[in-house]
């Protein structure tokens, strides 16, 4: 029997994998993918809490649907920005965008 703990374990692992990937990767697309991992771990959390703890309300399910939609919108804008960054810098590695600092 799969319980709440199993799902929470997976979602927490996904969350920290996402954060780890975001902090260590140098490629902007991979960083964006790591953020998506974080968002998906949150979706898992919401669904699991809804199914096991609070099946009467629909808050968790609705939240998941909206998070998926917003993640798509965010990815669209982020990819547009990354494409433009490629045009100006000829690279999508974060190290190349280092003009602004201190």
């Amino acid at each position: 029997m799969i319980g709440l703990e199993h799902i929470l374990f997976i979602s927490t692992a996904l969350f920290f994998l996402g954060i780890y990937g975001f902090l260590t990767r140098r490629n902007l697309i991979t960083m964006l993918m790591s953020v998506e991992l974080v968002l998906n771990s949150v979706n898992l959390n919401f669904i699991a809490f809804h199914k096991y703890l609070w099946p009467s309300g629909m808050d968790g399910v609705f939240f998941t649907v909206f998070v998926i939609a917003i993640a798509a919108a965010e990815a669209a804008v982020a990819i547009a920005i990354i494409i433009n960054l490629y045009k100006t810098h000829r690279s999508i590695l974060v190290d190349t965008a280092e003009e602004l600092k201190y």
């Binding site: 964006l32 949150v42 959390n45 809490f49 920005i81 960054l85 810098h89």
Partner: peptide
Amino acid sequence: KRSSEAAMKMILSSALSSGILLMGISLLYG
């Protein structure tokens, strides 16, 4: 160049911060 660098920094860090906000909300919901 500066403008696209600024936008990149803003969208990535705000995406991560909204991920953390969502994690907080999901724990609150749980």
